[in-house]
Design a protein around this nucleic acid. Sequence first.
DNA 1: TTGAAAGCGCTAACAC
DNA 2: GTGTTAGCGCTTTCAA
Lengths: 357, 357
Amino acid sequence: MISQEKNSGSAADIPITTDRAHPVTLREVAEAAGVSTATVSLVINKKKNARIADDTRQRVQEAIQLLGYRPNAMAKNLVSGTSKFIGLVADGVATTPFAGQIIHGAQDEAWKHGYALLIANTEGNVDLERDAIAMMLEYKVRGILYSTWFHRATEVPETLRESDFVLVNCFSPDSPASRAVVPDEAQGGKSATEILLRGGHRRIAFINTTTPAPAKDGRLEGYREALEAEGIAFDPELVMEAYPDQEGGYGATEELLKLNVSAVYCYNDRMAMGLYDGLREHGLAIPEDMAVVGFDNQEVIAAHLRPPLSTVSLPHYELGAAGVRMLLGLDQAAGDGPVKIACPAVERASVAVHTAA
Amino acid sequence: MISQEKNSGSAADIPITTDRAHPVTLREVAEAAGVSTATVSLVINKKKNARIADDTRQRVQEAIQLLGYRPNAMAKNLVSGTSKFIGLVADGVATTPFAGQIIHGAQDEAWKHGYALLIANTEGNVDLERDAIAMMLEYKVRGILYSTWFHRATEVPETLRESDFVLVNCFSPDSPASRAVVPDEAQGGKSATEILLRGGHRRIAFINTTTPAPAKDGRLEGYREALEAEGIAFDPELVMEAYPDQEGGYGATEELLKLNVSAVYCYNDRMAMGLYDGLREHGLAIPEDMAVVGFDNQEVIAAHLRPPLSTVSLPHYELGAAGVRMLLGLDQAAGDGPVKIACPAVERASVAVHTAA
DNA sequence: TTGAAAGCGCTAACAC
DNA sequence: GTGTTAGCGCTTTCAA
């Protein structure tokens, strides 16, 4: 025990160990420094018009160091009347692989502005959701980010309206006034198709999902737009549908092959992964015999398929960050409707580069 | 505006819209109900020995409804002296796919005990980390969960010691006294190998990782244990090493084939995914020509490979949950060293069932 | 340049 | 049964 003291270089560095049950308070610092609590408060908050004698300031700083003082954020918030919290309620962001990025983006951006993130995963349970929102309201959060793990329409829970809020990765049809940020599916679908177009392909199939969703419509719309921009007539025959996972993609192989296309754009990366298997079984090489692009940029898959998959990225991180910016009123509110975040193309090796004739 | 009133069924349901800048306080409820704040406090907290007249209670409840009162959690915490927060600092949990489950598990368990989760993703940045911990300390968190996205040794930041804390998915060699929860890699490796053993295989290869980590040692140890338990001599020749991703697994194919084994246990699912490709190129079928098991149970991959991969699950959710239980002193503290959480086997179709002779 | 005192919203003795 | 009152740790006039 005693031998430890040998190491104590500068005494000021080593706070007197404090009882965890009773943290050091402002008042104790004041007493130790022989000043009033008001003075200590002033030096801590570095008030501009804080005319404090240098040596007083000095004494206070030392007392703070010595005692290992930590301000009590709750007391601060109480008196200021405003908290420094932003709530994030998710229906499953933490559950699904890559969408945890929404948390990440929100947290980084919140932090940047001095806010802490209070999170709650409700797994879609309505009671849990109500409780979570209530909790956040009780902590007087600055606002709440309400997010879903996949892009969809949602109802805004009544209690949510007691606070500022923004919808992230979802939107509300019945309350057009609510603010929301969603991925730009149409632009993403357009970008995906363009990768193929740039590869010199003209006859391009699209395997859409069977599940109704904004993504289904948007990604198709983008496909049409890209085609039209190139003067290629949209051919409904080239649009197939399959369940949006590996099995769906695999199962779509036969039908795809009948279409006589040189390239295919899949609704998502998982589908593309399944399609890789199907194509391989037919002895077809990617991208030589068939160029493939996906959607989502699900790293574990897309970056490591053979060959690595060209795709389009779902901007989860940006969604979270843009959500807090919108909440804080930092982004110029655009027109009506949800703000759309771009889905950038990520080109890898599943589409050969086109050597123009 | 006025037309809206038509819908107002029971007036009590519709709180008087309150100015968000100035939420309803306990005192206002008291005044509205014509009682003192103490009384309101009593009915709100349903104190057992709360001898309150029924009609008083009634009036208070109504006032609460009418005004849309929400208790101020910060004031509560201030007076009680203890907060209801648990901090979670992660070096990247939110970033990596499945490890977001740590957040999920921690949140569920914390919630269950009335705690809210305050999270911070530090992305390994030391300054950010210090600030994050400071923030949590200022909110007087009940304790902090310090977690890493992959199982490894870590140093305990000095400031962390100002609070109760438990290490999640990591451990500290230089502070054996600190509490920690980690996955049981050895048991996991044993389980993985046992799947193969049960499949009737005797000559089993193990493709370990090239990257040093507790997982590398533990998973190998489990492999040896399982073999020995079956009376099979450990053969170092059968242990290979490769980079722990798809490319690594793919690249290991040739060497594996020279080993003349009927089964292989891969360090992780990604490696197994790459190996699938390699095996397929050699015209080998899984599980007929080669049985394969992985590790991690990375859903997107394992559940959807062709055939679906048998593997062993990294218990991230449980890690988070066990972490808060340990923090709260709910689990009987085991002996010394980190508490190990089991990695359960998940059997799918990459190993044929053994029809005993 | 600094201190005294009020008060943020709430709980907990302790009266009545 | 219910009200009065004294703080919890801090910020912020207002005096001195």
